[in-house]
Design a protein around this nucleic acid. Structure first.
Lengths: 116, 116
DNA sequence: TCTACGTGTAAGTAGTTTCTGACACGTGTC
DNA sequence: GACACGTGTCAGAAACTACTTACACGTAGA
């Protein structure tokens, strides 16, 4: 209970967010310091619309946060930071999270857990 | 840090394998005891071809292992078990893993198109 | 005004993943 | 033989993701 992580749906969301080379690289880069979108795009060698999509995916999953700031020369810059996430993935942790999955639950019984 | 986990590519593979409600449920069910394909399919309410595909994905990622056994009445049953995986996901762990990513690495050196 | 830099989004395409519905094989039993 | 149960795979549809191109807006400076 104290080690209760995210819900099943949230866990799927976080895992899916991290399960992509570019997004892994985004998190890795931001772990070394915050950055704004255009610069991050240049560093990673991806287009800004593409990076924008990946950042949104990461932000929805709660792994990064973005904040709009004004630079000294009046430009609106969107700075991103990694959040302080920590996930410990084991079979039992997964089993715990899976209890709260809401997506496509086939009408099986309450808990058909018999086994020989 | 001697807690060197999987390589970047392996990590992406494992995360992608877990980032699906059905596969999360497969791992959760197997965590409660090993099972064979047909029965697992019945318990989870998915078709066998579908389950077969998901199991393969999990096995490739190293999260489950399957073993063909002969039942007493001569049937070939494929039993699956969860492996003893343990992943600790934090921003710095991700940063560490991202160093070894081989997929689509843009050349980070010179700026490609920095026209003055 | 035009350029350079920042933001964001919409539309279309290419590619992958997911899923179903066949089909193949095997055994043991009625 | 027909049936019930186990294994596996192939082909195609549907859904989703990733990505590009092109556009919109903003300010500052020559």
């Amino acid at each position: 209970m104290t080690a209760s992580g995210p819900s099943g749906d949230e866990l799927v969301e976080m895992l899916a967010a991290l399960a992509h080379p570019i997004r892994l690289r985004i998190v890795a880069t931001l772990a070394g310091g915050r950055d704004y979108v255009s610069r991050l795009a240049r560093e990673l060698g991806v287009s800004r619309p593409l990076l924008h999509m990946h950042l949104r995916r990461l932000e929805v999953a709660g792994l990064v946060v973005g904040r709009l700031e004004l630079s000294e020369d009046g430009k609106a810059m969107k700075y991103y930071d990694v959040t302080d996430f920590s996930l410990h993935l084991t079979a039992s942790a997964v089993a715990e999270a899976a209890k709260t999955l809401t997506k496509q639950d086939p009408e099986k019984g309450p808990r058909p857990k018999e086994h020989t």
